[in-house]
């Protein structure tokens, strides 16, 4: 039931264990126990709300930054990553294959904030060879949710 439970919660974290139990044909207790276990195993890391900030706060600037790092031995990338993800501006950080090594999602209040963070913090680090900054213009889809989606059911009300 694990994967199905997780995908239900991933879609809607506010759904109750009782509701999940019905959907999966099991008991509320079993669901509660399973969720508890998934939390303690750090498989479920948190319950968040997906917000279209572009609707609320037009001033937030978002950028994806590619970082090229000097080749690292063993767990070298992890050490560099640790230094980077401690900055609160960094919303996500992933190690990538391909033309660059690390991909950061950075947020700031102004363009300048982000630019300064790149030039004064990231480029200054010894192991960083090159940076490329891409500013986000518009988000269409995130976490499998399409941001501006027509809600109306296009079907006829009754069909046999």
């Amino acid at each position: 039931m694990n994967k199905e439970l997780l995908s239900i919660l991933e879609k809607n974290s506010r759904i109750t264990p009782a509701e999940i139990a019905v959907m999966l044909g099991t008991t509320e207790e079993a669901v509660k126990e399973e969720i508890k276990k998934l939390e303690s195993d750090k498989i479920i890391l948190g319950y968040r709300t997906l917000i279209n900030w572009e609707q609320v706060d037009k001033d937030t600037i978002k950028a994806y930054i590619e970082l090229k790092i000097t080749p690292q031995a063993a767990k070298g990338f992890d050490r560099v990553a640790e230094k980077i993800y401690k900055y609160p501006q960094v919303k996500s950080l992933t190690l990538m294959s391909g033309a660059y090594d690390l991909l950061l999602e950075v947020e700031g209040e102004t363009l300048r904030d982000v630019a300064m963070f790149v030039s004064e913090k990231l480029s200054q680090m010894d192991s960083v060879i090159a940076t490329t900054t891409h500013f986000v213009l518009k988000t269409y889809k995130k976490e499998n949710v399409i941001f501006q989606h027509p809600d109306k059911d296009p079907r006829e009300v009754i069909t046999l």
């Binding site: 079907r155 009300v157 009754i158 069909t159």
Partner: peptide, 23 residues
Amino acid sequence: IRKFFDIVSEMKDAISLGVGEPD
């Protein structure tokens, strides 16, 4: 049935469980 339910489409806040095709 079809005619009877034509009113549903004009009803505000109506919920249909009448559709025989995938959502």
